[in-house]
Design a protein around this nucleic acid. Structure first.
Length: 417
RNA sequence: GGAGGGGUGGCCGAGUGGCUAAAGGCAGCAGACUGUAAAUCUGCCCGCGUCAGCGUACGUAGGUUCGAAUCCUACCCCCUCCA
């Protein structure tokens, strides 16, 4: 489609990050000759981000790699109010301390992907609470509010779709786009930020920011969005059995993160390699041509590279090695989730279902029992289908552990002290 | 402020006094088939319990009944229309 002159936009196009851009040629010309400062906003509702945000993280990374300056904007101000979307009555308001902690956790994720500092192309993280907290209503209405047309706002997708579906839309939420537009202008003033990026659902908000910048500060700003990413079977990406696929190791171990990518559906492999690894495009083209069982090689590379970016080389090696030993040799991998119990407890015999529950392979004893009855539970790779079975010291392997499995893919170890 | 409609299991959504731990769908788990993929078929899917047992559950709190998700009262929340 587009021929980009700038490294940054060329990467965006070639690797599939670009969905829409407000002025492709203009931005391209700017990025080809100047260092561009760009930002993406993130909520501070959890202490980590999940793969749903990974595209956004990757474009900030590419931005930096191609010589530009990324700003990570934390929505500390907006989070304080609480996102009013949906019909969910129990949205608890986050306290200031929680938000602080969340921002700190998210910062650790970004530290893996970006280089922060004071240099011209070092990334910075800023919190919109810095300016939103101090806004005064009347001045805001006079200076900013008068540039927004309600008629226009009502036609924006985010609002229109809600109204058409007769779903509630609070005034607070209606104002989100005003605040977000204001953020962009504030970042432009403070840091010379010229570009806002985001998911395709942010298009309307981004455009509002650009218009506001032109009206109140005579700024020429740009916007760029990424496509909404789903798996080829249509599922929203980033959900798994246990919940969201988190990017920090306290929430999801590097091994599980590796497994998430390892289990990518065939048709997604090429696309994911382009988006979530930094392998050269010709190498990716080669990998995605693999067919049948051979595509598993490509999935291993995807899993390894994606894990490396997020958790570092050592963790990725360990995860890959554990996966290899567990799946290809049927042996034990050191990285598997491990439960430690005392030798005395084991000697007194422990029900299998209890161990399954305690290792996290089942969420309750009932679920563990069902698992056993359905033939999905294995002890040291032998199926055990008696729901009343107990384990004792005889189950310890020569390595001094018990390997428990739930189905073919989920494994855990029990060790004694 | 007035009138009407509604709050059911992770989500959607049936259910108007016992047969309801609650139809159906989605999501999820396991088995079969495979390539740690997809699709398909089968079983499971509140908790505790070595079965058929018990405990909780249909917005919240009470009440009526031998018996309530279903009836009554109060409260909370949501939606629509009117003012």
């Amino acid at each position: 489609m587009h021929q980009a002159r700038s490294d940054f936009l060329r990467v965006m196009v070639e690797r599939g990050f670009l969905h829409q851009c407000t002025d492709f040629e203009g931005l391209d010309a700017l990025a080809a000759t100047n260092r561009v400062t760009a930002y993406i906003g993130f909520d501070a509702t959890a202490d980590s981000l999940h793969v749903g945000s990974l595209m956004q993280i990757m474009i900030l990374r590419w931005l930096q790699k191609t010589g530009h300056k990324p700003i990570v904007l934390m929505g500390g101000g907006t989070t304080k109010i609480g996102d009013p979307s949906g019909r969910d009555e129990a949205r608890q308001l986050l306290t200031e301390e929680t938000i602080e902690r969340n921002i700190a956790g998210i910062r650790r994720v970004f530290d893996r992907f970006l280089r922060f500092g004071d240099g011209p192309d070092d990334a910075i993280m800023v919190n919109n609470a810095e300016w939103l907290d101090e806004l005064r209503y009347i001045p805001l209405l006079r200076d900013v509010g008068r540039h927004f047309s309600v008629n226009r706002m009502l036609t924006m997708d985010s609002v229109r779709l809600r109204l058409e579906r007769e779903q509630p839309l609070s005034f607070l939420e209606f104002n989100y786009m005003v605040l977000q537009a204001y953020d962009f202008v504030e970042l432009a003033r403070r840091y010379g930020c010229r570009l806002q990026m985001g998911g395709s659902d942010q298009w309307g908000n981004i455009v509002m920011g650009i218009e506001l910048g032109r009206r109140i500060a005579d700024l020429e700003l740009f916007g760029l969005t990424t496509p909404l990413i789903t798996t080829s079977s249509g599922a929203k990406m980033g959900k798994t059995a246990q919940g969201a696929v988190w990017l920090n190791p306290e929430r999801l171990s590097p091994y599980d993160y590796y497994q998430f990518w390892r289990n990518t559906e065939d048709p997604d492999v090429g696309r994911f390699l382009r988006l979530f690894t930094e392998l050269p495009l010709d190498e990716i083209a080669r990998l995605e041509r693999l067919e049948g069982a051979e595509i598993n090689e490509a999935k291993k590379i995807l899993a390894f590279e994606a894990t490396r970016l997020c958790h570092g080389d050592a963790a990725a090696q360990a995860a890959a090695e554990t996966a290899r030993r567990t799946f290809e040799e049927g042996a034990l991998g050191a990285d598997l989730p491990t439960l430690v119990i005392t030798r005395a407890e084991l000697a007194a015999r422990v029900p299998l279902y209890a161990l399954l529950q305690r290792t996290g392979l089942a969420t309750s004893n009932s679920e563990a029992r069902r698992l056993i009855q359905q033939g999905g539970a294995r002890v040291n790779d032998t199926v055990v289908s008696d729901a009343t079975a107990t384990l004792g010291e005889e189950s310890l392997t020569s390595e001094g552990v018990i390997k428990l499995s739930a189905g073919k893919k989920r494994h855990a170890l029990v060790r004694v002290t």
